[in-house]
Write a protein that binds this DNA or RNA. Structure first.
Lengths: 243, 243
DNA sequence: CTCTGTGAATATATTCACAGCC
DNA sequence: GGCTGTGAATATATTCACAGAG
């Protein structure tokens, strides 16, 4: 985002707590998932060590992260699962119902509309729009696909909070502009392009091919380190112990 | 990953260059995309400033990032687009052909199999497997959906480098174990769970609901900062100038 | 005079290590 | 004794600011 919370408005009160670091925010959903799973298993207390294992991070980091939210643990015991779920949910704003609009009803749009993980965390897909008139009218996950022409009306009528762009790169910027003009200030972009937005609008990007490229970089690097086995076909290099 | 390159093997030579920082690696694909777009527009030189704008970062960061790869710019002029595309591609390992296996032929698997951005960057989807026998035999993007039972054979025969998990969380760990046992050392996980893998195997996670939760956090925060307008329905708060 | 490449300065993030509470 | 919460130490990342190449 381009917003900077260090410039305070004169009138507005606020950060009594020094603001949660970005890196911590990015891990809270992971903790939340681990905690939810533990709760479903009937666990009612977790130590930072156990939570760390479940989340795939170190225990010091769990404690540091959680300390930014407050002192919600008990020394000698650990964290009460339900209470911590509540606190993290509140911090993330999941106690409210977020209305999400998906633009693009291709395979990815379908996948997103059908994704169960949204509803359980308070995200409600209120509409699915598509540019292709042929797809308008289809029914996906209880939603009827509407025309992107109605974007402004849908945003206004449904009170959309978050726009998801699941469409080709060449349509992304124009659609994003329309969302922003209609009042949307949070956008999740799956199109492989950089979006320009005014200050105060937050865009997060998920780029599938970027992820593969990062994997390729590391894999290449490991292959070089293990000194380029000249074995044709599958290279079953003993990485585990070599590194 | 769990590997640490600071522990050097006694015999192996290596890092003549101090290794590219992780944060830089994550941005190289973005630069690459911007450069490719520029090349298609017939541009043959870009300054760090222009590249920065196209990539959505600051120009100092572009220069610092590129300096980790070597001195590929010309003072007073900028970077030659084609040459830089080549250097970044080489660094990322995109000059080789990466064979990708997608497990899970649901909507997300379909979307991934159809995604054009892979092929253009040297990623070739060699197979699409599914757990659901009913889906086996379908044809997607020129691929016939095969049974997950054949995972090991496909990995061996096609020489799979990267496994992509596009399946439900409860099947992810077991499938990942099979990929790893079959020799795959890079995994891209779309399932909403933490995967345990041995050292030497790299997992990257893409989690759709995590991204929404991060957006929700920031949006909530902004709404609080602007002091909770009691306007019902759409809240058209003047965020841009308020922050 | 422009624009890169890079040290130095700053900001963020992670890890360590231990005091203090249960 | 076990485990949290947190300062201090370290590691990474970003930004600044300018010397020097073209």
């Amino acid at each position: 985002m381009s917003t900077d919370s260090s410039t305070r408005l004169p009138g507005a009160a606020r950060p009594l707590r020094p603001a949660v670091p970005e890196a911590t925010v990015a891990r809270l959903p992971v903790y939340l998932r681990a905690l939810t799973a533990a709760a479903e298993d009937g666990v009612d207390t977790l130590s930072s060590d156990e939570l760390a294992t479940a989340a795939g991070v170190g225990s010091a980091m769990v404690r540091k992260d959680l300390s930014h939210l407050g002192s919600y643990g008990t020394r000698g015991v650990g964290y009460e699962v339900d209470y911590l779920i509540y606190q993290i949910s509140r911090e993330l704003g999941l106690t409210q119902d977020w209305r999400v609009l998906i633009v693009g009803a291709g395979n990815l749009g379908h996948a997103l509309a059908n994704y169960g993980g949204f509803a359980s965390r308070g995200f409600r897909v209120v509409a699915l729009l598509d540019l292709d008139a042929a797809r308008v009218g289809e029914h996906i996950a209880g939603l009827h696909v509407d025309s992107v022409d109605r974007l402004e009306q849908v945003v206004a009528e449904a009170g959309v909070h978050i726009g998801v762009l699941a469409l080709p790169a060449d349509a992304a910027q124009a659609t994003c502009d329309r969302l922003v003009a209609a009042g949307v200030t949070s956008v999740l972009n799956f199109a492989p392009c950089v979006l320009e937005v005014p200050a105060g609008v937050m865009v997060r990007k998920v780029d599938l091919s970027t992820e593969l490229q990062i994997l390729a970089f590391h894999q290449q690097r490991r292959v070089f380190q293990v000194e380029r086995h000249p074995v044709a076909g599958r290279s079953r290099v003993p990485l585990a112990e070599a590194l």
